[in-house]
Design a protein around this nucleic acid. Structure first.
Length: 638
RNA sequence: GCCGAUGUAGCUCAAUUGGCAGAGCAACGGAUUUGUAAUCCGUAGGUUUGGGGUUCGAUUCCCCACAUCGGCUCCA
């Protein structure tokens, strides 16, 4: 006699050993049907796991996060089984569940093609229909090693070889397919119905470029067909939002083969958005007590030796160029330049805090294969700033930077933040006292904002602790943009000082910070976040006046000029086209306000606006509309 | 950088075993004067990413370069 305690605290008594599945059945037939695995005393186990003593049991169903993970993991096995049936020469390696799906890496004599993917998926469906039992058994490490080596599965052999001798391993089998796996898995292949293979790509064995490249097949799997469908729909949606596609369709920017990869050309429409972003950036920074610097794009390489960047970031810096017997470096960072400005004269403790900002364009060498639209480029503009202050000013400065960060990101429509605090790594510069004090100041600043944070212990840079902020876009994707870093290293390396109250020289604290990070990347994120439908204050064209016939031209031009005089980015479409054609065209360009003018409007000095929702708002006076648009733009409503 | 795929008009895509490089949209010209997501007719548009090779002949086959796309972290 033993008792099983369920998550709600109630207990069930059993006289004989039972499986987890039987516990589910004892609770109810509905649960038994939905069950795919269980949790016994906190450990995830199969439904077939036997229980013969007092314990805590929770049933894991398909819809739960753990359940989905199990389905995905099991589907990766299903795929591996299908691959082995179709391509017996393929060797299996690893196949975990990942966010929204799974992958499995194979070693095979030739690359898999998209046709192969279709065949593999078809085979997976057959195996699912066969509803093969997925069985678990345990085996001594040496025995398992011999088994997999005997099957010619050398990667599995290598994995097992790395496990201590004498350990017992678990194996899962379904039909003829056997895999080393910790589990748990669904009871049979028939549980796996809602899946789709998505892509095939290279991946190194154990993630190391020195190792052989394997072929990774990615797929997605869900609890039911409906969830799968909505996920695939979401993928289509994000494809439509792809900033590379919208960038071309809306004529925002381009990347030109003739110029080289990773170098961004901002077209007039994209530049208008950037101007709006920069204008806002400038305004907020002035209000927050910053001064602005403009510094060169290149300088003597010696500067990068002094800063230490050459040592640490050599691989991601462009090669230097020769100028008059000297070597010059295109800048990968702005900080040494700001330090040079600091060094250009003596500083007193009374000068602090010094807050210097610059939209500084930097150039970094990225591997050609890593380039990706605006997200990974070789030349980009940081909204950079450096703050020089005294130790006791750190907390106030960090607090003010966080204020600025959250306010700015909020204006762009991001309201959900994840904060990460990275603390002192093993190898670092600076005394324990200063690290402790600075880290404490960072924590206090975060707490003042009543924000939760995740501490990455030992994850800081060698030169100081930092705070990173991640934003969540409207598709739920997370992006790290803002970073606030303390630097105990550069002031030392450049030997910058200030004269303290005691008349002696002291070392200032330096804070690096970027809120949007890279303007290019941030712009790309905004394009996808808004799906190209920028809020009024950012829209490259805020309003277009559309004429019904040529007779309304004079009034249309007057309306446009009136909008322009009010500071709005307005155009007039005077073409001899049907109104439906013009509306369609500007709607596709995602212009937030379309103002239709015909005889009626002209007579009454009015317009018939249509907002971003596509609704005809009826005849309105021009005055009241201008007032409304100006207000919306000024308040930067999202 | 590595693996794979791709590269044809501004865009999206065709082109038989290697045999005259096409269409829609956009552009331009004309007609039409139109009331809330595509009016009609016409014209022009190409070193098929670049370079080299095989061939009587290459968008097509081969080699090199470049670019783009997917991936290369997520504990058997």
């Amino acid at each position: 006699m033993f008792e099983v305690t369920l998550p709600d605290g109630t207990g069930r008594r059993f006289d004989q050993p039972v499986t987890v599945g039987e516990v589910a059945a004892a609770i109810g037939p509905g649960l038994a049907k939905a069950a795919i695995a269980g949790r016994v005393d906190g450990r995830m186990v199969d439904l077939g796991t036997r229980i013969d003593r007092d314990c805590q049991v929770a049933i894991i169903t398909m819809q739960s996060p753990e359940g989905l993970e199990i389905i995905r993991h099991s589907t990766s096995h299903l795929m591996a089984q299908a691959v082995k049936e179709l391509f017996p020469g393929a060797q299996v390696t690893i196949g975990p569940a990942v966010e929204n799906g799974f992958y499995y890496d194979f070693d095979y004599e030739r690359p898999f093609t998209t046709d192969d993917l279709g065949a593999i998926e078809e085979k997976m469906r057959q195996i699912s229909d066969r509803n093969e039992t997925i069985g678990r058994r345990e085996m001594a490490r040496d025995e398992a090693l011999a088994l997999f080596k005997g099957m010619g599965e050398h990667y599995k052999g290598e994995i097992i070889g790395a496990i201590d001798a004498g350990q017992t391993l678990s194996l899962y089998s379904q039909g003829d397919f056997v895999d080393l796996c910790r589990g748990p898995h669904v009871p049979s292949t028939g549980y796996l119905k809602a899946f789709k293979l998505l892509s095939v790509a290279g991946a190194y064995w154990r993630g190391n470029a020195a190792n052989k490249q394997l072929q990774r097949i990615y797929g997605t799997a869900w609890a039911d067909a409906k969830s799968l469908k909505s996920y695939l729909h979401m993928l289509e949606e994000s494809e439509k939002r792809d900033h590379r596609r919208l960038g071309r369709e809306l004529d925002l920017f381009s990347i030109q083969e003739a110029a080289g990869g990773g170098l961004v050309f901002w077209h007039p429409m994209g530049s208008r958005v950037r101007q709006a972003i920069e204008g806002y950036w400038k305004e907020t920074h002035i209000a927050a007590g910053y001064e602005f610097l403009y510094t060169p794009h290149m300088a003597n390489l010696e500067l990068w030796r002094t800063s230490g960047h050459l040592d640490f970031y050599h691989d991601s810096m462009f090669n230097p160029m020769h100028v008059d017997e000297q070597e010059y470096q295109i800048r990968p960072m702005n900080c040494p330049f700001h330090i040079l400005v600091y060094q250009s004269k003596m500083h007193s403790h009374r000068d602090f805090p010094i807050r210097w900002a610059e939209l500084g364009t930097v150039y970094r060498y990225e591997l050609s294969g890593a380039l990706h639209g605006l997200f990974r480029v070789r030349g980009f503009t940081q909204d950079d700033a450096h703050i020089f202050c005294r130790e006791e000013q750190i907390e106030d400065e960090i607090t003010a930077i966080l204020d600025l960060t959250l306010a700015m990101l909020g204006t762009f429509g991001f309201k959900e933040f994840d904060i990460f605090l990275s603390t002192r790594p093993e190898k670092s510069v600076g005394s324990t006292e200063i690290w402790d004090q600075a880290t404490g100041a960072l924590v206090n600043a975060i707490k003042k904002h009543h924000l939760d944070f995740v501490e990455d212990k030992g994850g800081g840079a060698f030169y100081g602790p930092k705070i990173d902020v991640k934003i969540t876009d409207c598709l739920g994707r997370k992006w790290q943009c803002s970073t606030i870093q303390l630097d105990f290293n550069l002031p030392e390396r450049f030997d910058i000082t200030y004269i303290g109250e005691d008349g002696g020289k002291h070392r200032p604290i330096m804070i690096h910070r970027a809120l949007m990070g890279s303007l290019e990347r941030f712009f790309g994120i905004l394009v996808e976040h808004y799906a190209g439908r920028f809020p009024l204050w950012l829209a490259p064209v805020q309003a277009v006046v559309l004429t019904i016939t040529d007779a309304s031209r004079p009034w249309a031009v007057e309306v446009r000029d009136r909008l322009r005089a009010a500071g709005l980015r307005a155009e007039a479409d005077l073409r001899n086209e049907k109104i439906g054609y013009k509306i369609r065209e500007h709607t596709l360009k995602k212009v937030p306000w379309l103002l239709i003018v015909g005889d009626r409007e002209q007579e009454q000095r009015a317009v018939s606006p249509r907002d971003a929702s596509g609704k005809d708002l009826g005849l309105q006076s021009l005055d009241s509309l201008v007032e409304k648009l100006v207000l919306h733009a000024r308040e930067r409503r999202t």
